[in-house]
């Protein structure tokens, strides 16, 4: 009986050890590629939300990570941050880039979401995102028609809640950036 139990434990241990060793090799082999993809994805998002910058820098201020974009002359052209909040199904995570000089939003980029495909998921589409390009700071009003004033955001047909959620997240993010960076440049 004893030998039997020890044989059982031995079998599982051997399989466990082989699996752990094999996987640690896989991990070492794939990690550089995975990290590169993550960096590229973030670079791409930054290029979308702070379009005119040449170089990007990650800074931590008051416990929050911000991204600063600099042009070729070394002047700061914009600040971006990753913000999240509740959507229709689950958390929506997005990146907002702003121009502090003109007090306007450069643009937004949705990073992760689980909104309804074909309806709420259209928050990732250009039609909706265009709403935020060159938008002045302030409290946004989500409307179900063509926007008539600068602070109005046109909702996606059939996905008002998703549209409002994004507007709310953007509003909060801008407030946070303004709190930390102050009003001006």
């Amino acid at each position: 009986m004893d030998t039997k139990i020890s044989k059982l434990i031995l079998t599982l241990t051997v399989i466990g050890i082989i699996s752990a060793i094999a996987l640690s090799f896989v991990y070492q082999w794939t990690t550089p590629y995975i990290e590169q993809h993550q960096m590229e994805a973030r670079e791409e998002a930054l290029r979308d939300v702070i379009p005119k910058a040449q170089e990007y820098e990650e800074v931590e201020k008051e416990g929050q990570i911000f991204f600063e974009g600099y042009n070729s002359g070394g002047n700061r052209t914009g600040v971006a941050m990753i913000a999240s909040g509740p959507g229709y199904q689950n958390i929506i995570e997005l990146m907002v880039g702003v121009n502090l000089n003109s007090q306007k939003v450069y643009g937004i980029k949705i990073l992760t979401h689980e909104e309804t495909p074909g309806l709420g998921a259209r928050i990732t589409g250009d039609d909706y995102k265009e709403n935020y390009i060159d938008k002045p700071f302030g409290d946004y009003n989500v409307v179900k028609r063509e926007p008539q004033s600068e602070l109005e955001v046109e909702a996606i047909a059939g996905a008002t809640i998703s549209s409002k959620s994004v507007a709310k997240i953007v509003e909060n993010a801008i407030e946070q950036i303004q709190d930390v960076y102050g009003g001006g440049a």
């Binding site: 039997k4 599982l12 399989i15 996987l23 896989v26 082999w29 794939t30 990690t31 995975i34 993809h37």
Partner: peptide, 28 residues
């Protein structure tokens, strides 16, 4: 080489190893 009593746990271990490989491979 696999004793009958630990058949299922052994199988699950082996499967989980290949799944982890697939996951990292796809992510990379």
């Amino acid at each position: 080489y696999i004793p009958n009593n630990v058949r299922i746990p052994s199988f699950i271990l082996i499967i989980a190893t290949f799944v982890t490989f697939t996951d990292y491979f796809l992510k990379a």
